[in-house]
Design a protein around this nucleic acid. Structure first.
Lengths: 335, 335
DNA sequence: CTGTTAGCGCATTCAG
DNA sequence: CTGAATGCGCTAACAG
């Protein structure tokens, strides 16, 4: 059942004016006699006229859509960023095409292709943990389609990035552990390829150094973020002749899994071993003990990233800003 | 830096053939001499020709985009459904415009308006808990834009719906509680306005009846799903002169919060009181005790909903199917 | 202030 | 098998 959508032409005919006049009245162009404008607006209201975006997009060759690539969708982290970005974007009249790489480079490339085919006006991306090659993103640059990175950024590309101060977040977390009397603090780190991992690792090391605690390589394990392997590393750490009395984990899922292992070994948290995570995932609050963690301003991150992107799309302002947001240590029972 | 995107016209000129021929060759139309086709395809490859979707959409007056409205984004439930739907949609050449109502009727209406303005070809929706009026959705129907409901459906609209067998899921959960020796089983239910709540409540009641356990209204509390109120209801239940020895909660967040309250009262789970949730949210696995819950085939739900929608869009098949998927009881430690 | 003209890039008749 | 012509609905010069 297809009814004829009212068009500018319809209105123009009924009012006996030119299409351009109607168009101008509708788009709020100043040079229209206010009487004419009112007549147009009235009729538009009466017929419930809706501008045909498909036509506008063609003529302006702008899709009014921004693309987004995130690594995963399971924890509440990226969904919340999406919420923030979506809000800003839709307020500015943009739709958001969301895509997830599932932490796979291949999929990320495929996502990029899809978004390109959809002619997005801009791209918001957080890299998969595998991504080392950025050709699929440079295509956008070459076409003049702006990109903004968030969270997992590409350091070698000269575009705006919004991240959290990972170094400081890690530093504060480890400092807190030290101040609560812990001496042997282990770190379950992420892959060195991710800037996030490196920064958090540095924060960890510098905090130890500041308090004159020797860095013990045995206590630092970096892994590929496949959470099901955490139990192996934790068992290894706990079986050490001189086991750790605290753990700083690269992220909350890692910390949560570590806590399960620790509990299954019959150790007490935080008395025998403290645990701190990173991200303030909503699951951390629900567990027992509640997870002490480094909170990131997720929603804000999405908002800022979207804002930066839209500024670039609309004003062609091309300043490769690095926005670094502050973290906050959320203290619960695990440390 | 805007370079000229290769167009059909460019190819036509270089090959000295008409635009229509090029167009036909590109769209795989049979009536093209295979030699001509090859020359076109070769040139298209050489220039990395990309069809301009904006133009195609206008001429076909089809946006190749489907809209999606979900109530929230915090638990892993909807994100997983989205993943499923997204996969099917993008395989079929559709983009997905995701929107979240934040459990608010107002926002849902606004979302619908945005999607309408974006001229989506179809709509996937799970209602907010507040939604009672469906005018904003009927607009789509009137325009001939197909709708498919999932999870939170509108019973009074005659469109395809994909849900889970809530009744059976609830029945099995309560039956399990009974079989493990529980006699006084409480139910924290959802608002009666949601079909989901009613069906789960019925499953609960019928299971009790089957095993000749009297239904005690004192043990049934329905609430508005604002999780921060759970502790009030739980305290009330636990302070009853004859308190429950088991709880069946409408969903996992409710169950998880309930467990916290129970533990804070010093009661043992499941010895003193068992708890079962609904949905198999990923947080349930991480808690202590692990949450026994009714698993829903989330990803499949998204896939089926998308498939149903796309079938409607493309084949105009208008059969108001009700797909009812099976649940599965996941037994962990909480019951 | 208003009308006329020309496309945006493509699909799709209708003729050959 | 191919070409020419038409139009999707709208914006944006260009002339008044």
């Amino acid at each position: 059942m297809k009814r004829h959508q009212t068009t500018i032409l319809d209105i123009a005919r009924e009012l006996n004016v030119s299409k351009s006049t109607v168009s101008r009245a509708l788009t709020g162009h100043p040079s229209v006699k206010s009487e004419t404008r009112e007549r147009v607006l009235e009729l538009a209201g009466k017929y419930d006229y809706q501008r045909n975006m498909l036509a506008i997009r063609l003529v302006k060759s702008k899709s009014n859509t921004i693309g987004m690539i995130v690594p995963e969708f399971i924890t509440s982290f990226f969904p919340q960023i999406i919420m923030g970005a979506h809000k800003i974007a839709s307020d500015a009249g943009y739709g958001v095409l969301i895509t997830q790489s599932n932490e796979s480079y291949e999929t990320e490339v495929a996502n990029a292709r899809v978004l390109l085919a959809n002619q997005v006006d801009g791209l918001l991306v957080s890299l998969s943990k595998e991504t080392q090659n950025f050709e699929h993103l440079r295509i956008f640059q070459r076409k003049g389609i702006p990109i903004v990175f968030f969270n997992r950024v590409c350091e070698e590309m000269d575009v705006p990035k919004v991240v959290v101060d990972d170094y400081e977040g890690a530093f504060k977390a480890v400092e807190y552990l030290i101040q609560s009397g812990k001496k042997r603090i282990a770190h379950l780190a992420g892959p060195a390829t991710l800037p996030i991992s490196r920064k958090r690792l540095n924060g960890y090391k510098d905090a130890l150094t500041k308090y004159k605690i020797a860095i013990d390589p045995d206590l630092i394990i970096s892994y590929d973020l496949s959470v099901d392997k955490v139990h192996i590393y934790m068992k290894h750490l706990l079986d050490l002749p001189n086991p750790p009395d605290a753990l700083f984990a690269i992220n909350d899922p890692t910390a949560i899994r570590a806590i399960q292992v620790i509990k299954s070994k019959g150790l007490r948290i935080p008395e025998d071993i403290s645990v701190i995570g990173f991200s303030n995932d909503y699951a951390g609050e629900l567990m027992d003990p509640g997870l002490t963690t480094v909170e990131q301003p997720v929603k804000e991150m999405g908002e800022i990233a979207a804002r930066l992107l839209i500024d670039q799309i609309e004003k062609d302002t091309d300043k490769p800003i690095l926005k670094q947001l502050k973290t906050k240590l959320i203290i619960r029972q695990s440390a």
